[in-house]
Simulated scan of single mutants.
Amino acid sequence: MKNLIPAMKKDEALIEEMDSFLHQKEGFRLWWLGQSGYLLQWKGKRVLIDPYLSDSLTKKYAETEKPHIRMSELVVRPELLRNISVVTSSHNHTDHLDAETLVPILKNNPDIKFIIPEANRSFVADRVKCDSAFPIGMNDGKSISIDGFTFNGIPAKHNEVARDENGNCKFMGFVIQFGKYAIYHSGDTLWFEEMIGILNPFNIDVAILPINGNKPERKVAGNLNCNEAVALGKSIGAKYIIPCHYDMFSFNTADVNDFILETEEKAQAYKVLKGGECFSA
C-alpha cells in the first residue's frame, strides 16, 4: 500500500502525547484513530469509541467486487492502547467491531468495560471470543455510568432503525456525558426526524458524525452526507461537529472539503482532524 494519507502522530509517539495529558485537570481531549474510531481522555480516564485498527477488511475483501483499499495510515497498533476504562461498539460491522483490534485491547486492559447494543450480544461474544455475559448491553433510552462517564443509548438508522425480537436496537449511537460535557457519537446512521428531539435535551458540545453518504451502488449501508451532517449538527445545537467515516476505504469515502464548505456556509463551528490528531476543549 503506497501513498497512504499520513497520520499526524502514530504508534509510540501518539501514546506519548496521550500520556503527557493524563494529569490534565481541565477540559478533555479527543484523538481521531481513523474511520469512526476515537480515544476520549478526561481526568486521566480513557474511553475508546468504535476502534478499527487493523487491515482485516482489506484482507477479507481483497479478491472480491468490493475491495476495501486503505487510504490512510494505521494510526496506532491496538496492543499499545492501555489504561482504557471503556470500549464501545455501536454495531456489528467490522469497522466498528473488529476482532483484530478488540482482542488485544481486551487482553491488555483487564478491568475494561465493553459497551454494545444488547441486540448484538451473541454475535459480539462469538466475534471477539469473550464470555457472552461480559459485554454491557445497551438499548435506546437506556443509560449506564462507568468511571464518571454516563453513556446514553441513541437509536441509529443504518439503513433502518433495526431491532431484534425483543425490541432492542441493532445499530446505535451514544451520548457520552462527563463533567459538564456531552459528546454525541452517532455510530453509522442516516437522518431520521426523531433524532433531533432525542438529542436536543443533551446540549451536545461535540457531535461526531459520518459524512460518507448513502450510495446503493457501493453495496454497503449508508450514512449521512456532508450537508446532512451539518444540518443535524445545527438542528441539535452542537457547539462543534467533527466529521468521520471518510479517508479509510477508497470505495466508501467523501471529500471532507465539501463538509468544510457546508459548515462555513452555515456558520457552524467544526474541527477536521487528521489521523492521530487531537481535539481539545
Rank of each mutant, 00 (worst) to 15 (best):
K234H: 15
S143F: 11
G179E: 13
V87Y: 05
S186T: 12
P243G: 00
K271D: 12
D19C: 08
I236T: 03
D11S: 06
D111L: 11
K271F: 15
P135Y: 01
N159I: 09
N3Q: 09
S280Q: 14
D255N: 11
I115T: 00
K170C: 12
G153T: 05
E262Y: 09
N257F: 10
I116E: 01
N166G: 13
G44M: 03
E26F: 08
P110M: 02
L33H: 06
K271R: 15
V206C: 06
E194T: 00
G137K: 00
Y270M: 06
F114D: 01
M172L: 12
E118K: 03
P216A: 10
I183Q: 10
K219W: 12
K2I: 11
Y184V: 00
L14N: 05
N212V: 08
D164K: 08
V76G: 02
D247Q: 08
I208C: 09
A207R: 04
M195K: 14
L53R: 03
T94V: 13
P51N: 05
V124C: 00
H68I: 00
G275A: 06
I204L: 08
S72N: 06
K43T: 03
F279T: 00
S54Y: 07
G179A: 13
D19E: 12
D11F: 02
T150K: 09
I176Y: 08
M195Y: 13
N159R: 11
N166K: 14
M172H: 13
A62E: 08
G233W: 04
P201I: 05
I236L: 07
G141W: 12
W31C: 04
L106C: 01
A269C: 11
H93W: 13
E165N: 12
R121V: 02
S90E: 10
L53K: 00
P51W: 04
A182V: 05
S122C: 07
A7T: 05
A62I: 03
A267L: 15
Q41P: 02
E160F: 11
E12G: 07
N159P: 15
S143R: 13
K9Y: 13
K9W: 13
V124R: 04
P210Y: 03
D55P: 02
V124Q: 01
V124Y: 00
G34M: 05
E63V: 02
S145L: 03
A182W: 05
N257H: 10
E194W: 12
